[in-house]
Structure formats: structure tokens, C-alpha cells
Design a protein around this nucleic acid. Structure first.
Lengths: 238, 238
DNA sequence: TCAAAAGTGTTCGATATACACCCATGC
DNA sequence: GCATGGGTGTATATCGAACACTTTTGA
């Protein structure tokens, strides 16, 4: 039964969200130029190693970029179209970056969240890593634009199952207003601020602090923090 | 940058649900015995071909089993642990069924639904295909038991996004009672029958027929049908 | 007439939505 | 004192949960 079953290279690609107090951003890397090709931004990712699970590979990519060992991430889809790596520029880049004659490349897409003010590692293999606002996402190689679009749907599903993840996008101390803008950005629609306050009040794991904003030219907002312990107690009760 | 990136074989494995009016069943196939090994049941699946997307491979497996060309299916996770195919029996089987020296096998798991009274194709490569009730699932090779467990969580998520899928598990004409038992099986808990009638009444795409059961030794139940057109109109309104 | 399943309404609590004004602060 | 964003309450509609009896049919 020798048939044309195929061995493929397998990669992970990570859609890493950040929030800059106004909008969602995605962490993009520049891939090296090949020949006359322009440098181009793409999702960070990597081929998987010999003895590596895909989850581990995604963690490795995240660690290289952020220095965080145990980051929250979520696999959301495998992209395996035979012609997803058919663009000549993409083939050239694959040959240079990895090995020649990669005939096929299947990728497993991951979603992750990161505080945007976190200092990023400068990973030598990339020319630059930078946050790109969602509305300014460029054309990207392979099917990275499609991967990104699917990740936007996935992040909402993820929140429903684990509301705590949004706090990965905020500083440790945050105002209700920041949380409000974050929800509006994720759901891409305005949310009534009074109802939002009520909603937060029902989240006993969002705890008010005594501390308030300083130096703002308006009434100072109270800071809140996410209380992991209370949250985990709740979760086991569900 | 020649490193130990790996080429792997890639397979799809399908968790196909059926409903026998009392409980959920899974379609399992027997894989051929190798040497002294006993015949063993597993999820149907296949390696992917050279120019084949994973979705197409899953569709192919489904088509081979059921003869249905366009079946509803949902990718739900990629399983890629380096030691998922480390069991000696599994290695022997892989060598015989496919090619020798498959060093690594990554699988993409799919969920699908099928009317249980559908006549199944007898696919030559399997000794038998049969429905197995959920509570009688045997030990399966690879990580198929884990894949099955995750599919049970996934089917509920799927329903929330697309309530129509449950009708793939029922005959074209069905009673509220059948639908009720199906929901109870999927959520694995009793659902109040009066509330359930109300719930169904709000689904305008579940249409009552004039026809009723015959030959039953109790009050005959009305038949209902799923109206795809009405359902699709609703969906675009969301 | 009995057994077995079909079918039917009301109440209550929780949750989501809509909506407008005063407060604190820096300039 | 004014511009800016922070913070608050009420009324209504909707949804889910609890709960028991009558109807129809074949045996």
C-alpha cells in the first residue's frame, strides 16, 4: 500500500494580541528580505522540532518573543491547504530560512495575549518585532491574513469560556474605563458604561483598590485588580 | 540553518456521532490484526494525500464510510504529541497499513454527525464498521480515547453556534420526544419536558407536520421536520 | 380499565437593555 | 468656570427554571 501519502513540514503561527488602551494590536515580525523582495511583516511562528509537540513549539515562539515561560495560549485551527505556501516569494523565503525544497507546509494557528507594555526580546532571527494596530494590518505572506481573521472570532469564544483571559491584556492595576474600552475593542461595538459597571460589579474577582489615578485633569478613576484566587474558586464551582 | 525541523505524516481522525433514540453512538472501525495482536476498534481516519487539504481528507473518510459527499464536519483540534504513536502495536500497524518507518504522526481531529439508520458502505480496508454506544467505548489505539473525550465538549460548543446540526442526527421526520432525548444525551442531564416544548416552539425552523405516529400503544406523537430555508433566513439575521 | 407516553401554563428569579445626570480634577 | 472623563440607579423585557395534571391510544 505504498501510495502518495505525504510527509509535510509542520509549523505553528501565533496571533498575539495586545491592547494599547484604544485598540487591539497584533504582534508582527519582519521577515528578512530575499533577493529583490521587500521586507514584509508576518505572524511570528516556527517549524516544529523533531521531538516537539505543537503546543510546545507555540510556547517556544512566545518565549522567544516575550521571555514568558508559561503564557496562556490556545490552539484554534490547523491550516493545511496544499497551496497555502505557493507564492514564489514565500517559497524563496522558506528555502532561505529553513531548508530547500519544502514542498508543503501545514501550520497550526495559536492565539495568545500579552501586555502591550511588556519589553519584547529582540529575537535575532527577526529584523524587528512590533505591535500593529488591527486596522493597519498589512498584506501578509502565506494565509496569515486569514489566520488573523479567524483569531478575531476565536478570542470572543475564548472569553466566554474563560473571562479571565482579558486581564492578560491589561496592566496589573487598571481602571474600569480601560476594561470597558478593551471589551468594546474585542466585541467591536459600544457597550453602555452604566451596564458595564454593573457587570463588573458582579465579577467578584475584579477587586477595587484604594489607589486612584493621579495627575489627570478630571475626576481620578479608581484602580482595580484581577484576583486570581477568587476567580479560580468560582471556576471550580461551575 | 539546517536544523532538526521535522517532516511528519499527517492524518485526520473522525469522531462520527449517531443517535439511536436513546444514546449517542460513535462510529468505530476495526483495524486489521498484526501478528499476535488482537483486532482492535479505532476512530476512522486516514493519512492525507499529497495534494490534499485536511478538510478534504476528512471529507474523503466520511464519504468512504457513508457515501455522503457534502457532510457537515468540524475540525476541532490537532494532536501532535511526539509519543502519541509510540505504542509497539500502533507502530506495527502503521508499518503494515501505510509505509514502514513512520517516525511521527500528527493528526487533525474532526467531528461529524450522521443519521444512525443510514446504510454504511463496507469499506474494504476495514474489517467492520459499527456504531458503538458511548458508554461501551473500548480502549482504542493512539490517543483516540482522548480525541473522543474532547469531541464531546466540542459538540456542545458547536450546537451553540449552529443549533441546526442536531437534526443531522435525527430522521427527517421526528417527534419532540426524540429531539428531547437527543438533547438530554448530548448534555448528559435531564431537561424538563415542558420547558423543552416551549424551547422548541421558539424555533420557527422546527415545523410541525400533520402526520402522527401510528401503531403505538399510547397517545400518538406528532412529527416535526427541520426547515432549512427558515433556518438560514434566521442565521443571516444574527 | 390500565399502562405508557404525549401534551400543555403559570410563576418566579435572574439577567440584559435602555436611558441622563452630577462629580471631581486640572487648566 | 469650563472641559474632560468618572461614576451612579431605575424601569422594562427577556430568558431560564421549577413544577403536575389531563389526554390519547393499544393491549
Amino acid at each position: 500500500m505504498k501510495t502518495n501519502f505525504i510527509q509535510t513540514y509542520l509549523s505553528v503561527d501565533c496571533v498575539i494580541f495586545g491592547f494599547d488602551d484604544n485598540q487591539l494590536n497584533i504582534l508582527l515580525v519582519k521577515r528578512d528580505a530575499v533577493d529583490g523582495e521587500k521586507k514584509i511583516q508576518k505572524l511570528p511562528g516556527s517549524l516544529i522540532y523533531n521531538e516537539e509537540d505543537v503546543d510546545d513549539a507555540a510556547n517556544r515562539v512566545l518565549f522567544e518573543l516575550t521571555g514568558i515561560k508559561k503564557v496562556r495560549l490556545r490552539q484554534f485551527r490547523c491550516f493545511a491547504s496544499p497551496d497555502r505556501a505557493n507564492n514564489p516569494d514565500d517559497i524563496k523565503w522558506l528555502n532561505k530560512e529553513y531548508e530547500p525544497n519544502i514542498n508543503r507546509l501545514v501550520t497550526v494557528a495559536y492565539l495568545s495575549l500579552c501586555k502591550i507594555d511588556r519589553k519584547l526580546n529582540n529575537v535575532s532571527k527577526y529584523r524587528s518585532t512590533e505591535w500593529c494596530p488591527l486596522n493597519l494590518i498589512p498584506e501578509m505572506p502565506f494565509d496569515h491574513n486569514q489566520i488573523l481573521n479567524e483569531s478575531l472570532l476565536e478570542i470572543r469564544r475564548w472569553i466566554e469560556h474563560d473571562p479571565a483571559i482579558v486581564f492578560d491584556l491589561l496592566p496589573n492595576k487598571f481602571t474600569i474605563s480601560q476594561l470597558h474600552r478593551l471589551y468594546e475593542a474585542i466585541y467591536n461595538k459600544p457597550l453602555d458604561i452604566r451596564n458595564f459597571h454593573k457587570k463588573v460589579a458582579t465579577m467578584d474577582y475584579v477587586q477595587p483598590l484604594e489607589e486612584r489615578q493621579t495627575g489627570v485633569s478630571h475626576r481620578a478613576a479608581r484602580y482595580y485588580k484581577f484576583d486570581k484566587i477568587i476567580y479560580n474558586k468560582r471556576k471550580t464551582n461551575i
